[in-house]
Simulated assay, not measured.
Amino acid sequence: MFATLTERQEKILGLVVRTYVETGQPVGSKTLVNQYELGVSSATVRNELAALDEMGYLEQLHTSAGRIPTEVGYRYFVQKLLGEFRLPVHEQQMIRHQFHQARLDIDQWMRLAAAILARTSLGASFVTAPRPRSNRFKHLQLISTQGRLVLMILVLYGGEVKQQMLTLAEPISQARLSAVADRMNALLVDANYEEAIARLGHLDELEADIAKLTLDILRRSDTRSITDIYRDGLMNIVDDEGTRQAVRVLEERTLLANVLAETQTSQGGVQVVIGGDGRWEELKDCSIILSRYGVADQFSGTVAVIGPTRMSYGRNVAAVQYVANLMSGFVYDYYLEDPERKESA
């Protein structure tokens, strides 16, 4: 993926990225020699800058001007040169205190996480609410209303309740409907979509119809688009020509869902998408730093910051990771540790 760099070239590339991120000005050999003890001449540094330019890590906007990192240069820096970065202890304490002061309320925590990330990164942020990796059947009720009309109520773990009116071919007694519901509850308890299919054996006509509707609801719940998205800091990027398109990403749920689906493949790791990684034209001048949070294979969501490619990657990666860890603790407390809340979910 990357052209091989010498140790000196790596050092110079890292210094160019850090200096450009800090100043916003193209970086030349004179700046590097004057500010850093490189132990080589300005001519040698110029040759190395030219080599990095030729390999695609740097670019020169104007003849005789300094150089700036390309998307490839940023990617090399993030993957190979960034190293480990932690937020200062006083910032960690402040963020942790803010979360501890908040009520154990999911909406408040989502808004707080988005606000903290926007303030810490000086960019925009978004947080998606935690949702089950796969929805699981909890309870089914069938209620006769009038004539051939029946109200079907399906409760999923995680608190989602689905209601649907059914029109039967002929009136059926409440006792018969309750018996069908009892059988479905016994067969499908705690089952996800695939497990439910495997458990359903011989069914009579009414049971088969109810089972088909139940499976359809489970399948659609697993594939539904993101619904709860908390955003903050849009004003931090809306005036930047290069990141104006990022606002569109945050506003268009389908595009955002596609980005998350293609990037978030593992729990707990921070991922960095630079310039859309060649997949999303809308992100060509942006970077997104994101991480999943929650409890693996149960409930999880995403926290992320988005801004220009010229951003403080070390600080923002650390902020996203720190907030994701706090949010994971919240999800465990909120959904799994409290048995009463879990039972009522």
Rank of each mutant, 00 (worst) to 15 (best):
F2I: 00
L5Y: 00
T6R: 02
I12R: 02
Y20N: 09
T23V: 07
G24F: 02
Y36D: 01
Y36N: 05
E37H: 12
E37S: 08
V40N: 02
A43K: 13
A43G: 13
N47F: 11
L52H: 00
A65D: 05
A65T: 07
R67K: 05
P69V: 01
E71F: 04
E71Q: 07
Y74M: 04
R75T: 03
Y76C: 03
Y76Q: 01
F77Q: 00
V78G: 00
G83T: 01
E84K: 15
E84T: 13
F85S: 15
P88V: 05
H90A: 15
M94L: 12
M94G: 14
Q101I: 10
Q101Y: 13
Q101M: 14
L104I: 14
L104Y: 09
D105M: 07
I106H: 07
I106G: 05
Q108L: 15
Q108E: 15
G123L: 07
T128M: 01
R133P: 08
R136M: 08
H139Y: 15
L140K: 01
T145R: 15
R148Y: 07
V150D: 14
V150H: 13
L151W: 12
I153Y: 15
G159R: 10
K162F: 14
Q163C: 15
I172R: 15
S173A: 15
L177P: 15
A179K: 12
V180K: 08
D182F: 12
N185D: 05
L187G: 08
D190H: 09
E195H: 00
E195I: 02
A196V: 00
L200T: 03
G201T: 02
H202S: 10
E205A: 05
L206T: 01
L206Y: 04
E207Y: 04
E207P: 02
A208R: 11
I210K: 05
A211P: 00
T214V: 11
R224T: 09
S225C: 10
S225W: 11
I229W: 04
N236K: 08
T243V: 02
R244C: 14
E252Y: 12
R253L: 13
L255T: 09
A257T: 12
N258T: 09
A261S: 08
T263D: 08
V273Y: 03
G275N: 04
W280F: 10
E281H: 09
E281W: 13
L283I: 03
K284Q: 03
I288T: 04
I289P: 01
Y293F: 05
V305Q: 01
R310N: 12
G314A: 07
V320R: 03
M327N: 05
Y332K: 08
Y334E: 06
E340K: 11
E343C: 10
S344M: 05
S344G: 06
A345C: 09
